[in-house]
Design a protein around this nucleic acid. Structure first.
Lengths: 366, 366
DNA sequence: TAAAAAAATGTGTACGTACACACTAAATTA
DNA sequence: TAATTTAGTGTGTACGTACACATTTTTTTA
């Protein structure tokens, strides 16, 4: 990749420092170097590299040999500069105003946007209402119609996501998703293993379990049918207990956000539950209910929302599992940008670590 | 930053699609655009941007106005291309052959190297013997003498690191460190808050504590004097217990790697310790000792070494705190590369999250 | 007021890649 | 053998920035 610059100098005193300087210098291999070594013009080298024919067999051999020998790598900067195209990336995420969970996600995206402000990419963020699948499809279709080079979205709804993907297939748009569940035929997905996530929750609770402890899985959401992610967490959770403590009974409760406090309160008192695995970011609801009932309990749930954090510090939530929505968003966006600008390859499916948060290490998260 | 390209076209059928295409297209602002708007030559614009004078007040005003109005951002690609310099980065880390802990660190660096293979950076990795401070200084001095553009190292030893930093100050070399402890006057440091890290360990153990439990902090290392990081963890640990359970006695034991098993075994039996916070990656030594004594115990320690992982899965280690040496290394190297290539700014001090690992979420770590 | 000096401005070229176009040499046809 | 086609090759220019140098304009001096 590099060659030491050869040089022949009559070493006067002044030249001497120059020589030291140059002897350390390294030089990148360019097509010009290849052309020189293969004894052809840069045009021929270029034709070989891009395989657009019109090259004699003899020249082809020589150029390929030189390419190999000097280990040529095209300069991505020059390439990108010449390319002179502005790539567009459209992003569709749930409205953070409607659900606070998505706030870090927007923040992460905005950071990446300003990071690449000076580059030839045009990134735009759009929101849908997480409680309205139709808003998701509508906004999505609008964006797809504008034919961006890449479309990055949160596949919150199963069927609706597949509809968008179908539309994307018609056009030549890179398909990328993050968070929630990976769909088929997506070019790139960044997320977490939700089944494993459930097992992690189970292990955290298991460490506190006594034979008599009553355990419940709580799902808090308005659109449970579409949210398979909660089901996957439940499966993971149960699989762990099946292995470690097969006899232990585990209650499951789906709670609507309407009259949530009363429902929860009733459920807890009726069944005398003391250990809770909450599958969504609304974990604070359980902590709050326990607090109002003045009951002790072990609560493990999801995400670093302000309300969750305050209960974590008060000791009413023992652990939170961090889904890092911001990181997921920024990672997937970065991958897209670098793929477009420098055609850097990135893994098709990237599962981020499942991070365990307690009252202490929470301080180390931004 | 962008302008919609204006165009006036007589719309024949063929032109129509062309028009649609162009009307969506955006164009980056270049110095050429600025020159046009300010009604001067690009040379003048260039002089304004680089503040090298020889510009009339009138022109300066016009150019600055245009710069402001169009929100000009120099194209980092073109700039870097023109720059045409190969930057060198020298890296000095402990030899992974001598201490397995550093293996992911080397791996992380190698990944970044191949990631930027095609760019104008020349990154070289060098090793020192972590048990020999002199080897650290010697290798370090050699590298500094070669005058790289940046020098990235692990400040494992206090005094010796400061000696290197002094040498670096003589020359115009960017000073970067990761892992261990941040030193003064470094341009960039990536690490973890070790005091907080100790508190996290304390909290993890605290959740299991019964009034009668005997707790010990175990330091396993050969050169404790130089390793302030272990002291910081101890302080953090104790501070937590002082707050939460002031009366609880906490033993502290420094163990040399020589005759380690015997020493540990004796210590544990004599004091009837059941809960252990091990401040280094050699946590497996404690787990192994407990296993051989056939004693139950709670062990919290550091890092995902193979031996630690196997005891974690066996249940003989409850939690590991992940210091992510690989991530620290790759993050700091990336920052350096991007600073040199695109002069992207990065925070002077970056503290990574303290990650808690148990037998389940360990699967989600690479 | 002309000449000289200083200040301001514009032009040209390079970085490395990519591609259009012009060109030369060999192969085919009339 | 000349005219034409075709294969193979080389040259020139653009991308956006940065800087050296040439040129123009203004100011100062004689």
């Amino acid at each position: 990749m590099y060659v030491h610059t050869k040089l022949v100098l009559s070493l006067t005193r002044i030249d001497f420092h120059f020589w030291i300087y140059l002897s350390v210098m390294k030089k990148k291999i360019t097509i010009k170097d290849i052309a020189k070594v293969a004894n052809v013009s840069i045009g021929t080298v270029d034709r070989v590299i891009h395989k657009r024919g019109k090259v004699s067999e003899k020249a082809l051999l020589k150029v390929n040999a030189a390419l190999e020998e000097l280990n040529y790598k095209a300069n991505p900067l020059a390439r990108s500069l010449k390319n002179n195209v502005i790539y567009t990336i459209a992003i569709l995420i749930p409205d953070p105003e409607k659900d606070l969970y998505w706030l870090p996600c927007r923040k992460g995206i905005e950071e990446v946007i300003s990071e690449y402000e000076a580059f030839d990419v045009d990134i735009s963020v759009h929101f849908f209402d997480p409680s309205k699948p139709t808003s998701f499809v509508q906004k999505g279709m609008e964006l797809i119609a504008m034919c961006p080079n890449a479309f990055l979205f949160v596949p919150l709804f199963e069927r609706e996501s597949d509809r968008l993907l179908e539309a994307l297939n018609q056009r030549d748009i890179i398909k990328a998703t993050f968070n929630s569940l990976p769909r088929n035929h997506v070019d790139q997905h960044v997320g977490q293993d939700l089944y494993l996530s459930g097992r992690v929750g189970a292990k955290l609770i298991y460490d506190f379990v006594r034979p008599a402890s009553k355990i419940a899985i709580i799902h808090i959401d308005e659109a449970f049918n579409n949210a398979i992610h909660m089901q996957q967490k439940e499966e993971g959770f149960k699989s762990f207990f099946k292995e470690m403590s097969p006899g232990h009974e585990i209650h499951t409760k789906i709670v609507d956000t309407e009259q949530i406090r009363q429902t929860l309160s009733d459920f807890i008192q009726e069944n005398q539950i003391t250990m809770f695995f909450v599958t969504t970011s609304k974990t604070y609801e359980v902590a709050r209910t326990l607090e109002s009932l003045d009951m002790a309990g072990t609560v493990v749930g999801y995400d670093l929302l302000p309300d969750n954090l305050s209960y974590l510090k008060k000791g009413r939530i023992q652990f939170l599992i961090h889904q890092a929505p911001g990181l997921q968003a920024s990672l997937s966006l970065k991958s897209l940008v670098e793929k477009l600008l420098f055609d850097k390859e990135s893994p098709k499916k990237q599962l981020l670590p499942i991070e365990i948060i307690n009252s202490e290490n929470v301080e180390s998260y931004p």
